[in-house]
Design a protein around this nucleic acid. Structure first.
Length: 108
DNA sequence: CCGTTGACTCTTT
DNA sequence: AAAAGAGCCAACG
């Protein structure tokens, strides 16, 4: 299991309607590679799905539920607006491009 | 192998 | 409140 895979596996555990941060993800992986975590999600080639899920390289992992530790959205491969919409759709309110961590943060 | 690059975070202006 | 600096680390060329 390489670094990227672990990041993705962890990301898949985030329940609908909740979010987590790059920091928490990194800590969960026993590392301080906050930035590397972001990189893994951005690349997100997701080759591990070769067994069960053949296609759908994207959208298997709810990467839109991963945000910055200050509640701002961070980034998204499909565009920040897209990410905002997905989150809202799950019941997460976004004010001024920020998310209320007190309400929606998932701590595993 | 070494230098750059980031979907980062924390501290200090 | 907002911006700049420093520290971090995996991945890539």
């Amino acid at each position: 299991m390489n670094f990227s895979e672990r990041v993705l596996e962890l990301t898949k555990e985030i329940p609908k309607g909740r979010v987590t941060t790059y920091k928490i993800l990194a800590e969960k992986l026993d590392t301080k590679a906050y930035r590397a975590v972001g990189n893994s999600l951005h690349n997100n080639k997701k080759p591990y799905g070769s067994s069960d899920c053949k296609n759908q390289t994207f959208q298997r992992v709810p990467c839109h539920r991963v945000i910055n530790s200050d509640g701002s959205l961070g980034g998204f491969s499909k565009g920040i607006e897209k990410k905002k919409r997905l989150l809202k759709k799950e019941g997460i309110e976004i004010k001024k491009n920020k998310i209320d961590l007190k309400k929606f943060l998932f701590r595993f």
